[in-house]
């Protein structure tokens, strides 16, 4: 049994990370089926209900209700949709831009490398939070623009880390050999270099997903993300902030949800890095 699974699936970190993400992803996909209530359904008669295990709770609202009497659990489940959408689309977008530039810089070197390298340096000298806030002000409010802002700010993470990996692979003799047998640059990059750097790429994407979840929460906290009609975790924290003394539960649940989501992505990324990174596994084998 143990040997059937690939090594990366045998790592405890990967299993924990994947399970957490799978639960959140299922919530996002099947939100209408899973949520006990409509997340926007207000019931002003039952506001600030505590979760079921506390005194004075209503068993219809498992995690209680917020200031407008909306079901917290349903809002968390629906909030997963926004979080997952941003996590997946934004990190893939950042990966596509960052990785493309990294492959160009690492493979061709010389002027292209220094040009892209300088661009990354300049980009990274802006504080990321300020930069995304300015971008949001410029682009306008909305989920699409949140994704865009994350892509524009975070592509440098991929570019910088991946470039050094590509440099190592591109200096191998098998790349020279591929050139000698007549592989085109495009074919060398797609057939020889990308497969070699894929483990790193996967790892970076899973870490970026965690970052994207946080950034989306931050932006929706300050009201720059989705409209108030769509439930989002950051928004829930922002709403609960005013009533923190009356009802700390309302703040705690979305905060914990964000924590677990990011924890899941980081565990997955760390586990993948440990099992897929050729250099690390080589050291461990010795």
């Amino acid at each position: 049994m143990r040997n059937i699974l690939p090594p990366w699936l045998r790592s405890a970190r990967v299993i924990i990370g994947l399970s957490i993400i799978a639960v959140i992803a299922l919530c996002a996909v099947f939100a209408p089926l899973l949520a006990p209530h409509d997340p926007n359904e207000q019931n002003l008669l039952t506001t600030f209900l505590p979760p079921v295990w506390a005194q004075g709770a209503d068993s219809a609202y498992l995690l209680g209700t917020d200031s407008l009497g909306r079901d917290v659990l349903s809002r968390l489940i629906y909030g997963a949709r926004v979080a997952m959408m941003v996590a997946v689309i934004a990190s893939f977008g950042a990966m596509v831009i960052g990785a493309t530039l990294a492959y160009l810089a690492g493979y061709f070197g010389g002027r292209i490398d220094s040009l892209i390298g300088r661009a990354v340096d300049v980009w990274m000298s802006f504080p990321p939070v300020i930069m995304s806030l300015i971008l949001m002000v410029g682009l306008g409010v909305g989920l699409r623009n949140v994704i865009l802002a994350i892509v524009i700010v975070d592509w440098t993470r991929f570019c910088r880390v991946l470039r050094s990996e590509v440099l190592v692979v591109a200096s191998k003799d098998y790349i020279a050999a591929a050139r000698l047998v007549g592989f085109s640059h495009w074919r060398i990059i797609t057939r020889e270099i990308i497969p070699a750097s894929l483990p790193l790429l996967i790892t970076l994407v899973s870490l970026e997903m965690g970052i994207a979840v946080i950034v989306e929460a931050v932006l929706s906290f300050v009201g720059l993300s989705v409209s108030s009609q769509t439930p989002a975790w950051g928004q829930m924290i922002a709403d609960a902030r005013q009533y923190i003394y009356d009802s700390p539960w309302n703040l705690l649940f979305p905060a914990l949800t964000i924590f677990f989501a990011v924890f899941g992505f980081n565990m997955l990324g760390d586990g993948l890095r440990r099992t897929l990174d050729v250099r690390l596994t080589a050291v461990q084998r010795v």
Binding site: Y174, A177, A178, L180, V181, P195
Partner: peptide, 29 residues
């Protein structure tokens, strides 16, 4: 002209099977 490299460890793509390595020239053509 074809070349054989010094370090066979670095000269062979560890992710390709031997059969695909030796016929890379046909794949390129």
């Amino acid at each position: 002209v074809q070349m054989v490299f010094q370090d066979p460890q670095s000269a062979l793509n560890p992710r390709r099977r031997v059969g695909s390595i030796v016929t890379q020239a046909m794949e390129a053509a």
